[in-house]
Nucleic acid binder design. Structure first.
Lengths: 155, 155
DNA sequence: TATTGTTATACTCTATAACTATA
DNA sequence: TATAGTTATAGAGTATAACAATA
């Protein structure tokens, strides 16, 4: 549904703004990822796996911040697409070692670049690069509830 | 679940940041609204109703940006708490006129104030008021995909 | 006994389709 | 016929509980 004639008191509240920022961002990233057969959730899983290297499903789930039961279906989909592979860990056969396949790494790199470009398109028409960096830093600080470190030239 | 040791590549992406900004904000607003028996969703409905004045359920649904079938249960809850009332519209008995009750208006005012204070607590330890206003303006601009009008002294 | 992956189940949120009463 | 509210149903997304294999 569009955003026409929403109540102004509502549209100025932080909860509304965060929710709809997510939705509008998705309007940029979803079509950018579609050619790779990936969703934003898929890409998040791949970012986690790429950061971890070979890992168990439990570790992947923790890295993404979801339950291990939720990770099962996410990996089922990525495995069916040939992007990740699972095999029993030799030293503990209860575990699966999960990692990107060779072609999965290529798909991931291209999809990540496309998603980055979509994020830049989302933010680029609204503010310049300095302000975008400042905005993102303040957003990061809000999520961690740390004090924002704006204007730090040594990043 | 907490946020411990999430993958850094993931936690710097906009999608992740918006999602978790919502979650952390909710950690402030949810307990602030609980004494009034209201959720953030309830408060959003009340903000819409307050802005519209007496309105049909369809108009309320449109103002909130949900389907009319979704509005039914939201109003069921608020009506059971005595915060809103529904009555058939005299000039068209297919419609319900929905409005806040007298005590509902008091609850709403107090809950809105509590939610506002929770938002200030969420943002206040992270940045000063000027930066918070700047941040909110950029967030608003991202949602509407307009150019941000920062530093405009005439608001 | 405890842990990993899996499955079954349930819960939340939301939408579409169908029903009712009115118009 | 069309519309407002309602109900039934379904889908996405997630979690908890229970199960099989392994430790």
């Amino acid at each position: 549904m569009g955003v026409m004639s929403r109540e102004p008191q509502l549209t100025s509240r932080l909860g509304y703004l965060f929710k709809h920022a997510q939705q509008v961002l998705a309007e940029f990233t979803t079509p950018a990822l579609a050619p790779f057969g990936l969703t934003g959730r898929d890409l998040a899983v791949l970012i986690v796996l790429d950061g971890l290297g070979p890992a168990s499903q439990q570790e992947a789930a923790h890295g993404l911040g979801v339950d291990r039961t939720t990770m099962v279906a996410l990996l089922d989909g990525l495995e069916a697409k040939g992007i990740v592979e699972r095999r029993p860990a030799e030293e503990d056969r209860r575990r699966n070692v999960v990692q990107l396949t060779a072609s999965g790494r290529q798909t991931f790199a291209a999809a990540l670049a496309a998603s980055d470009e979509a994020e830049r398109a989302f933010i680029g028409t609204v503010m310049d690069e300095d302000r975008a960096a400042e905005f993102k830093e303040r957003l990061r600080a809000l999520v961690t509830q740390e004090r924002a470190r704006d204007q730090d030239p040594a990043g």
